[in-house]
């Protein structure tokens, strides 16, 4: 026993850091760590800082490369209706309009579906472990995992013909592709995202206030309408904002079905381009400096818009979570 104890002690001491060395380090940095701890903490900190610096560098790179275009066109960059690489005219209004139309239309289509899914999965309609809830949850998860290029392909071969058919029947120019088609595909893509946000929000409603409603004799519809939805208002707003951010930045699916026209869209069935899709279409071939820098300018706008939207959404959600 005694022997064993000594042996252990020896092993321990053998691997202990040297004392004077430790004291030196401590003196040098005025800290209470041993050297490996100090190094580890610095490595971890540097990796964190690296992310921060990279984010800043991304913004700086984008802005620096877009300056020629902003300088040349000034405010015309945002309100110019003509985008013409041949004559070096770069006004992005058609794309801004295209982006806004597509995303808002998509969002409008999405909202009833997402709300229904959130209510269903949020526990209002069915017990947690039911077969249908599981089925719905897994389907939504799968939908959110499908790559956007596949959505685009699917849109091209199913949604486009359907829209074209409707257009022929109603006497609209039968492009098939266009803002409307893009919105449908986009809405299918963002349903899983907004539904999962909505579900999180609805699950946060305290059971007591729901039960209070039921105990007063309210129907489920009335509880949802007068208690749950008002309670979740800010959370749902945030969810819509975050979904909007997604929709604005989505590229591939939209590029494949929007028709790629640089003209100002006349109506919601017109072929158009969004800010993201114009970059996808022209960036690789942008040889002229001004063209290149204008496309990056659009990237800057995208960056800023999505950042502002997502930060605003996050702040609202956080406030909502604290308040409940």
């Amino acid at each position: 026993m005694e022997n064993n104890k000594q042996q252990n002690n020896k092993t321990i001491c053998h691997t202990n850091p040297d004392w004077s060395w430790f004291a030196r380090v401590k003196a040098a940095f005025g800290i209470n760590d041993i050297m490996p701890d100090f190094i580890f903490k610095k490595i971890v900190l540097i990796c964190g800082l690296f992310i921060l610096v990279m984010t800043v560098m991304i913004l700086i790179s984008l802005i620096a490369n877009s300056i020629p275009s902003f300088k040349t066109f000034g405010i015309k960059f945002f309100i110019g209706k003509v985008w013409d690489p041949v004559f070096e005219q770069y006004g992005t209004l058609p794309f801004i309009v295209g982006t806004l139309l597509t995303s808002f239309l998509a969002l409008t289509i999405t909202i009833p579906f997402s709300l229904a899914i959130s209510l269903y999965l949020g526990g209002e309609f069915i017990k947690e472990k039911s077969f249908f809830a599981g089925f719905l949850k897994n389907s939504i998860d799968l939908l959110s995992g499908i790559p956007s290029v596949v959505y685009g392909f699917f849109g091209l071969f199913l949604i486009v013909p359907i829209v074209r058919y409707i257009q022929i029947k109603t006497g609209i120019e039968p492009y098939g592709v266009g803002i409307f088609t893009a919105s449908i595909v986009l809405s299918i893509m963002i349903i899983p995202f907004s539904a999962s946000l909505g579900r999180e929000v609805i699950e946060m409603v305290p059971a007591e206030i729901k039960e209070a409603g039921y105990s007063l004799g309210a129907t489920r519809f009335e509880v949802i309408r007068h208690i749950i939805l008002p309670y979740c208002k800010s959370g749902i707003t945030a969810g819509i904002l975050l979904a909007l951010g997604r929709a604005i930045g989505e590229t591939m699916a939209v590029t494949m079905v929007i028709g790629n026209s640089n003209m100002m869209p006349k109506n919601i069935f017109s072929p158009a381009n969004t800010m993201a899709s114009i970059i996808a279409n022209e960036f690789a071939e942008a040889i002229k400096d001004l063209h290149f820098s204008s496309l990056i300018g659009i990237g800057v706008v995208l960056f800023i818009v999505t950042t502002v939207i997502s930060i605003a959404g996050k702040i609202i959600i956080r406030k909502f979570a604290i308040h409940s």
Binding site: M1, N4, Q7, N8, T11, T15
Partner: peptide, 19 residues
């Protein structure tokens, strides 16, 4: 020992665990 990176022989380990 493991977390401090102290290497022990198999017999030593068994002995310590047993004790």
């Amino acid at each position: 020992f493991i977390l401090n990176g102290i290497k022990l022989k198999k017999e030593e380990k068994d002995q310590i665990v047993f004790n």
